[in-house]
Design a protein around this nucleic acid. Structure first.
Lengths: 349, 349
DNA sequence: ATGAAAGCGCTAACAA
DNA sequence: TTGTTAGCGCTTTCAT
């Protein structure tokens, strides 16, 4: 192509091809089938467009068609195994549909979340996925006002379809696993399971606490209030709390249910100061999966949430004409110690 | 606001405010200062716009202004600690500038990479960052044809400014650390350092191999060809290669320079089958950082690449009027064993 | 201090 | 089988 300062438009191509702009548009957008444009014309136009390095101006098309070909997704943070897997799946499915994904992170800030929704509306995204919504009702209000389809992922919302992980069931499985694997100690104070990490008012955490509690209760071991330490997600807090706990108990408890990878990081920050052998009478579980955690000095039972299926189901719902306000639960998976999970994108570095 | 099926436009607001569309536009876009519109009018318009839930149609604005307010970034994969940190930083800086980030993953596929660039051009992004480019020259061609500013990150390109990690220096530091920490064994075959993982023709890997080689050579221990095993990034391959290596040597080598977290995953997949104590005479280093790797059964020396600074420098370059084809190198950091790094977004889970 | 009108690049009716 | 025309919502001269 020749040197331009301005990008070629449909008009330029039309002139060069001796055709009209609408013919060029149809030829290039694939609408020529229904417009019965001769294949030779299409070929010619295609060739010229190619030579000119033409590419559709999506802003113009979007403006005309009142849609953009963009799909939005909000996640709490990029820098996280669980959510970045979601991003990867979200993008893959979007591409299959010829859509362009726009992923934004809210840092779990409701204001930021709302601002992002507004922005995505401004760009006329075709629909949005919201993972880990902190204020789902507000999001639904904004989307409804803009006539924008949306679906909640990971955390449910009251005003739109949701796809979530079955936290209750996952927690029951993990708790039961810890209970079964637990070695019993003479000291009754230490001979118990503890739950650490997360925010008790979070939907996901509260469901997991229920699962934890129900399994213990069914085993005749109803947990006391001190056995549930919902100290948030930051590693530092978890480290302090687990240190305090070991102090109180005079050692590690028989079992620990760690309620997120970040809390687990904190727990490890304390563990690293303990003498080897400390873990022989403790069994550790973590709700969320990390391949490196599979290879620590002690066995770790992990729950892997199926982010790929979560996203797949979310696409299914958003493409269903009238889904209603359903909540679809996806089963997570127990990953035994020393096991590496190979995901859908597992071979990439 | 009342129930609409159609979103409010500048004309609706104009009618309600008894003003003209251009006045509304100026009032809402902030251009009213230079247009000397009375503050009361602005207030009125703002109020009405708010009531109507108005938000600017960015496609229309973009079409008119021939820019979109979008900034694109291409990364190899989302599902990766290094690149997802980049995404987080990229987004943070974009927001500071009032821009909307669009992040796409190429899966290291040159065709996909080109397609993404085309797409981003179609959406009239203001500029793009390309991390881990597999075909930088092609990207530069496309961008130049579309008059689009771009900068390469992590892997340099020949036709645009680049910001990369100082792989040579990082590799030297890590190699020297392994050399210093190494315990010497009687068996001369095992008493050597091995480099494993990565693709030898990759720019980053080749620089790291140079660093590895230069340090060993300076120490009077020039590495043989068998000491450099560039078996790619997939965990599986690394696992096979390290197993074969241990087989050949009759045990673990004195030191292992693992050239990526994914390769490290594979290495661990083999290590987990070794008897405890196997690691007492081996020292392990990994180029790239993971907090869980800091807490394995054996100490791991890691190199943390400063993705945040990488992105910061990339923004600096893209905002410099005539940067030329410079290459800016950013120093990585050695993270000693049992150390947790707290990044700029470290307190998020 | 504000309005009128043109036009960004494209697509969809409607004509021919 | 193709061309003409209007208009998507906004910004930007140019008038007033």
């Amino acid at each position: 192509m020749t040197t331009h300062s301005r990008k070629a438009t449909i008009f330029d191509i039309a002139k060069l091809a001796g055709a009209s702009p609408s013919t060029v548009s149809a030829a290039l957008s694939g609408a020529w089938k229904s417009r019965r444009i001769s294949e030779t014309t299409v070929e010619l136009i295609r060739r010229i467009a190619d030579e000119q390095g033409y590419s559709t101006n999506m802003q113009a098309r979007g403006l005309r068609q009142a849609r953009s070909g963009l799909v939005g997704m909000i996640i709490p943070v990029h820098d996280n195994r669980y959510f970045s897997s979601m991003s990867q799946s979200f993008e893959t499915f979007a591409r299959d549909r010829g859509l362009v994904p726009v992923i934004a992170s809210s840092m779990r800030d409701p204001d930021e979340e709302r601002r992002i929704v507004q922005t995505l509306i401004s760009y006329a995204v075709d629909y949005i996925f919201v993972a880990g919504a902190t204020d789902p009702a507000a999001i639904t209000d904004l989307c409804n006002a803009a006539n924008l389809r949306h679906v909640f992922v990971d955390l449910p919302g009251p005003g739109a379809p949701s796809v979530i992980s079955d936290n209750y069931h996952g927690a029951k499985v993990l708790t039961q696993t810890l209970l079964d694997a637990q070695a019993h100690s003479a000291d009754p104070a230490r001979d118990r399971l503890f739950f650490i990490g997360g925010v008790a008012t979070d939907y996901a955490t509260s469901r997991r606490i229920e699962g934890f509690r129900d399994v213990l209760t069914a085993a005749g071991l109803p947990p006391g209030a001190d056995q549930i330490i919902a100290c948030g997600y930051p590693p530092r807090r978890a480290m302090q709390e687990v240190a305090a706990l070991c102090d109180r108990l005079g050692g590690l408890p028989a079992g620990l249910f760690v309620n997120s990878l970040t809390a687990f990081e904190g727990v490890l920050g304390h563990f690293v100061h303990l003498p080897p052998g400390s873990f022989d009478t403790s069994v550790i579980g973590c709700y969320d999966y990390d391949p490196f955690a599979a290879y620590l000095q002690f066995p770790v039972h992990m729950i892997r949430q199926d982010s790929h299926r979560l996203i797949a189901e979310a696409y299914r719902l958003i493409e269903t004409p009238h889904p209603g306000i359903t909540v679809k639960e996806v089963e997570p998976e127990l990953i035994p110690p020393r096991t590496i999970y190979a995901g859908p994108f597992g071979e990439h570095g």
